[in-house]
Design a protein around this nucleic acid. Structure first.
Length: 425
RNA sequence: GGAGGACUAGCCUAACUGGUAAGGCAGCGGUCUUGAAAACCGCCGGGCUUUGCCCUUGGGGGUUCGAGUCCCUCGUCCUCCGCCA
């Protein structure tokens, strides 16, 4: 959510941002309504002050034994009028907030303007396998052949897009989770196991609601949402709180399953583990002071890269253009790993800086120093990293001519020292 | 799921049969001091168009001139009962 003062004073900046981010929001309706609202507040407060004075006067009269009945009758009307205006004001406030929730965050200055084709390649690491010496099958074939993946039975018990990992496939994934959590914990991130269901308030706080309502699974009986990313429960952890001067920065990491309806995505990149309704992810979330958020963003990116480097997976870093940037983000790097079996780059991490956008929605503040006014924190998060696609790329990258899959060295301690997945023929 | 109790600012704790949130601790700034402690003074929920005004007693609503207090509703925690991996 954007600051109202900012919307008033920098309305043209916002107008441009809405265009740049390919969003739509009714700015003019907001500005008009906001003007009415401000003058209404002034009127309401004046009436309230008058009512408070009248009521205090009645109290004095009663104490000194005077007859207050005519004053009470007069104040009754005043009080009635105040309530009516208060009612109007709160209705207008609610409408304003609804409009305000639909304004996207402003892209940072160094974000390229444009669509997906304008994403900027920042750097590449490692050599993607482009001309393999033998046929590298896509992970769905490797997975089925080695008994790691049973997509048909996953589809049977839940539906398409709900993968079933089996045997060494399940164990491999668990090894990856443990490895990544250890890596982040050692870098100073506090480990969390958050709720997997959240209420509407939390889903609004991080920006999923109202815009992405169709992409989330909803439990209607209890009005709870399955999390699409652990960003939601973790970021909202401090919703409505004021943190102390020494509380920042705070770094958290959490492994959770993530649930996404992927509405409208059917038929697009949906084979195997490329796009699924349920996937595991290790996430990192930071709460930081505003003046440090740019450097914190860079170091968060570096931490996500460490995962891929340790796994010896070639990857590239993309800076997203404004049109590809998510609703709540001011700036975002994507990490993409090479999938030699599918022959494509796969996005396994988004590392985003939200500025104070989420903090303002969720009400997360901090006190910069003793006796100083509370300010909104900056929130950042990054996948470190998403598992389904990571497993896909590791299976394809590690595939040997014998049909087994070589396990990256760093993971072997987590696999009981094992070097390969799959038996020798 | 049922019964009972509780919720006041970072923490603790007051407020008559409804009368307009009183204190304490911790913390911060200052005076004094070689330094510290003690003592004393100030600050110590949020907001604003800041000699002032408005809002704030878990959230929302109601009654009333006026609600921490009365009523309704939701939430959270505690105790007991029931159910349960």
């Amino acid at each position: 959510m954007l600051d109202r003062k900012f919307i008033r004073q920098e309305s043209e900046t916002l107008r441009q941002a809405i265009v740049d981010k390919r969003e739509s929001a009714d700015l003019d309706a907001f500005l008009e309504m906001d003007k009415q609202h401000l003058s209404l507040i002034a009127q309401v407060e004046e009436l309230q002050a008058e009512r408070n004075r009248a009521s205090a006067a009645i109290n004095e009269m009663k104490k000194s034994g005077e007859d207050a009945s005519s004053a009470i009758a007069k104040t009754r009307e005043l009080s009635q009028r105040t309530k009516e205006l208060e009612q109007q004001q709160s209705e207008l406030e609610e409408q304003l907030r609804e409009l305000q929730l639909n304004f996207p965050n402003i892209p940072a200055d160094d974000v390229p303007r444009g669509g997906e084709q304008d994403n900027l390649l920042i750097r590449e690491w490692g050599e993607p396998v482009s001309k393999p010496e033998f046929e590298i099958k896509p992970h769905w074939d490797i997975g089925e052949e080695l008994g790691l993946l049973d997509l048909a039975r996953g589809a049977k018990v839940a539906g398409s897009g709900f993968p079933l990992l089996t045997g060494e496939g399940a164990r491999f994934q668990r090894a990856l989770i443990n490895f990544m959590l250890d890596l982040h914990r050692e870098a100073g991130f506090t480990e969390l196991i958050p709720p997997l269901l959240v209420n509407s308030e939390s889903a609004t706080g991080t920006g999923q609601l109202p815009k992405l309502i169709d992409d989330m699974y909803h439990c209607s009986t209890d009005d709870l949402w399955l999390i699409p990313t652990s960003e939601v429960p973790v970021t909202n952890m401090f919703a409505g709180e004021i943190l102390g001067p020494t509380d920042l920065p705070r770094y958290y990491t959490a492994y959770t399953p993530c649930f996404r309806r992927e509405a409208g995505a059917h038929g697009k990149d949906t084979r195997g583990l490329l796009r699924v309704h349920q996937f595991d992810k290790v996430e990192m979330v930071k709460f930081v002071r505003p003046e440090t958020s740019e450097e914190e963003h860079e170091s968060l990116l570096a931490q996500a890269e460490k995962v891929l480097q340790a796994l010896e997976l070639p990857y590239r870093v993309m800076l997203l253009a404004s049109g590809d940037l998510s609703f709540a983000a001011a700036k975002c790097y994507d990490l993409e790993i090479w999938s030699p079996g599918v022959g494509r780059w796969l996005e396994v991490s988004s590392v985003s800086n939200f500025g104070d956008f989420q903090a303002r929605r969720a009400g997360i503040r901090f006190r910069p120093g003793e006796r100083e006014k509370p300010q909104f924190v900056h929130t950042l998060n990054g996948s470190g990293v998403a598992l389904a696609r990571l497993v896909a790329a590791l299976l394809e990258t590690g595939l040997t001519p014998l049909g087994r899959v070589k396990i990256p060295e760093i993971l072997r301690p987590y696999m009981g020292g094992q070097e390969f997945i799959g038996k020798e023929d």
